[in-house]
């Protein structure tokens, strides 16, 4: 079975197939996002406590989910690339790093903006935000390592190991930050839970979550295609593509 998977994952094959998939994924992503925005900004009722500021949640929460989800995907893809030495898995791992870091950054910014009206300051050492900040450093570590190593293949394998080490540490870091948070501030006001989840608030949250997942798929495929072109630049099919491109 692995032999088949190895054949399928030939760069040339991957490049062609992903080229076909991207437009569909993009359209679906747009559709879900528009539906999510419509539901979130127009249909969902105003919250009796937070008024309309809670609508930031429809961007903040999916982004936070994505930051963790993408790190997991990166670690798993990296692991597969390392163990079975499948080039494509390595490429998918490293292509996820930048978009994962972007979602983490987005979660941090929107989290702090959402917190401002509630607590009056741009940053609060809330457990979730603090874990998100550390996750951002983990991502930046992966990206920095990838750029620091000259040889592309060694760089990809080094970052895969780092991602695996990181993914083992994420739950430990999260637990220790939760522990640290309850130690200093007590589990009171800074709970970040969404307001009493009214069903009509849940829909936009899920729609946006699906939209972000589709968006990740589009971006990771786009980046992977560039990485494939870069790595296969001496092959005939890439040379043909280059000629075509002019």
């Amino acid at each position: 079975m692995l032999r088949f998977f190895h054949q399928l994952a030939s760069p040339k094959h991957f490049y062609r197939i992903s080229g076909k998939w991207i437009p569909w994924l993009g359209a679906a992503c747009l559709a879900f996002m528009l539906a999510g925005l419509y539901q979130g900004l127009l249909v969902a009722p105003t919250d009796y406590q937070q008024g309309d500021s809670y609508r930031i949640m429809f961007v903040h929460v999916p982004a936070a989910w994505m930051s963790l989800f993408i790190y997991m995907v990166m670690a798993i893809a990296g692991g597969i690339g390392l163990v079975w030495r499948i080039k494509l898995a390595e490429i998918m791992a490293i292509s996820s790093a930048h978009v994962g870091a972007s979602f983490t950054f987005l979660a941090l910014i929107t989290g702090s903006i959402w917190g401002k009206p509630m607590w009056g300051s741009w940053w609060v050492w809330d457990a979730r935000l603090t874990s998100e900040l550390i996750l951002l450093f983990l991502y930046l570590g992966v990206i920095a390592l990838y750029n620091a190593v000259e040889d592309r293949r060694t760089a990809a394998r080094a970052t895969s190991i780092l991602a695996l080490v990181g993914v083992v540490n994420i739950p430990i870091i999260h637990y220790s930050v939760e522990w640290w948070n309850t130690l200093h501030q007590g589990p009171t006001v800074t709970k970040f839970d969404a307001p009493s989840i009214d069903f009509r608030m849940l829909i936009p949250l899920l729609l946006m979550a699906i939209a972000f997942k589709l968006f990740y798929a589009v971006v990771v495929l786009l980046r992977a295609r560039v990485e494939v072109l870069q790595r296969e630049r001496n092959t005939s099919w890439v040379k043909a593509l280059v000629a075509e491109h002019e």
Binding site: F137, L138, G141, A144, L145, N169, I173, S176, W179
Partner: peptide, 20 residues
Amino acid sequence: TILSLLVLPLYVPVLIFAAS
């Protein structure tokens, strides 16, 4: 230079439990 970026985030749990 990047060693600290790779390693310090992983030191956080030790710092938290020990200092507290």
